[in-house]
Amino acid sequence: MKKSKISLVFNKCKIEKRSALITYTVAGDNNVNNSIKILNKISKHADILELGFPHNTPIADGGQIQGSSHRALKHGIKLKDVFHIVKRFKKNNPSKPIILMGYFNLIYQNGEDNFLKSCKASGVDGLIIVDLPYPENKNFANKCKKKSINFIQLISPTTSKDRVKKIIKDSHDMIYYISMLSTTGGELKVSPKKILQNYNKIKRIDPKKNLVIGFGITDKTISSLKSASGLVVGSMLCKTITNSLKMGQNPVTKLDKVVYNLKKKII
């Protein structure tokens, strides 16, 4: 079977002996055009791009991502705009993986099959659905697999060992480890050493799996976690957009710099 673009990126990073840098921004923050510009810029440094499709009643997002989602929704962003952003980006960057992240109700209203069709047509490589846990997600994950779209399972510090094994067994090319008990963007309340201990326990179950760490990662903490297969930075980027808008600066150039610096810290 043909390798997914997500697999190829992790293979490349393995050869370069570094972890993959994964960024998260909200589609349409602060508007559709800037969102495309941001992706074009930061993709020079980032290996995989997560793109949030905003929901107005998120139950697992902290203040920063809520703020970004709110801005995007205020600008009237709809799912069709999200796919438009992906399509426009992919035209110039066909091999750079894009993962959509969001809440299930939007997919439910759009229709699962319809949603996946749009994913396929625009070039989405993977999906993270925050409120569709294992095993309830089995059906939908299988549908994704059939369309060669990665369904990315989540594992948290509260996930039991038994459950971790089952989740890994049913996972696709990437698994997301939530670093601590927190919403997105919380202050890192666990030491990086402890996070890596937990991470390695999970990694040992199937060392071939691309296991990435997310939640609470900033320029301050990223280098201490760089032994992981991949690292996700999200809230810090949303905060950068918020601050640059407040200061009347261009969020695109600001974000470019921040992501460049993050990359420097893990190579």
């Binding site: 697992a60 948290s156 509260t158 996930t159 039991s160």
Partner: peptide
């Protein structure tokens, strides 16, 4: 078994962290 009433209402659409609690 998925905690749905009438096959369509209810369930547990929750983040992974809340699964165990």
């Amino acid at each position: 078994k998925n905690y749905m009433y009438g096959g369509k209402f209810g369930g547990n659409f929750i983040p992974e962290t809340l699964k165990k609690p």
